[in-house]
Design a binder for these strands. Structure first.
Lengths: 188, 188
DNA sequence: GTCTATAGTGCGATAGAC
DNA sequence: GTCTATCGCACTATAGAC
């Protein structure tokens, strides 16, 4: 038997969500999460800088996809086209199987101010990273920042809708619809 | 001699800012702040729910003034007039003598993600409270939320400008200018 | 005011991957 | 052999319970 099973990080994330959802965030200790994943508390903190972060690693993965989509867009793309490319690329992260998981995760976050703080910070970091990516694609200010803020907002609203009860559309569909409505605001 | 000097809260806030600014947030313990203010660690945590909160008590006072200004505005005021009344009332908090203090405080916050998280949460709470205050004044949705979000943004931008190097205008003047520019966006 | 649980860090030893 | 992830343990500070 191997000294350590692969996928420690993912097991910790799964265990944490389950325990947070069933017992509450503050009532769950890092040691309990670690034990549920078959590792020690020390290993938990080697994988996640603090107890809140275990819920937000997925956000970082999503951001990386979003940024990758912008970087991979064809040369000469407009700011809005870059943002659409990013939204499309990022949306691949939110598969239909992930939806129940995301609903559970959001319920936990909504119940704990400490987690809301982290979520807000991640949101600002996403907007900031998008702005940087757009500037690196040659978009000047203030278009880069405006487009980045819009993109972050569209994602946020689309995600909230995606996890709403009864919603069946993909997050990409929802985001496209929102971008369309946003455009209509300026042409009507 | 009194058993305890008055103004414990304020002394703790002053001591905390000085220590955070000179040594850094993480390098300063709650016990050190308490000692500098002449009280025990226990008293620190009785006054502030956590170590970060000692820097944000002022934000709560400001919010209370802002909300009071909205509540005190004349009947029949428009959403924008209510917001202006709130901004005017709140601006009284930011006296010229407070400006160096605010600059120092913001530098500390900008240097520590843990403090940025708290700042973001306070910002969301302000916007949410403004929306509630407007609804209580009879403003329907979506005007209440839109106006509240605008008001929170104007305050945020005005505050950033107010602490900018060389800036001498009052925060009320800056906010009025921003509201004017915002209005011009819709009439040009 | 005192006592205690938990978060989070530092470091040496160790076991497996390569 | 090197590199990396884990363990195990000691330790401080936060924050809440009593």
């Amino acid at each position: 038997m191997a000294r350590w099973e692969p996928g420690t990080r993912d097991r910790l994330r799964e265990a944490a969500l389950e325990l947070f959802a069933s017992r509450g965030f503050e009532e769950t200790t890092a040691a309990e999460i670690a034990a549920a994943a078959g590792v020690t508390e020390r290993t938990f903190f080697r994988n996640f800088s603090d107890k809140r972060e275990v819920l937000f690693a997925s956000q970082d993965e999503y951001a990386a996809r979003f940024l990758g989509g912008i970087a991979a867009a064809p040369a000469g793309a407009s700011p809005l086209e870059l943002m659409s490319a990013g939204l499309d690329a990022g949306s691949g992260f939110f598969t239909d199987e992930l939806r129940p998981h995301s609903r559970k995760r959001q319920a936990v976050i909504d119940a704990h101010p400490a987690l809301q703080e982290r979520e807000l910070l991640k949101g600002r970091r996403l907007a900031s990273a998008l702005g940087q990516a757009l500037r690196e694609r040659g978009i000047p200010e203030p278009a880069a920042t405006l487009t980045a803020e819009t993109g972050a907002t569209v994602f946020h609203v689309a995600f909230q809708q995606w996890i709403a009860p009864g919603e069946t559309r993909s997050i990409a569909e929802i985001a496209r619809g929102l971008l369309g409505e946003l455009g209509a605001l300026h042409t009507s």
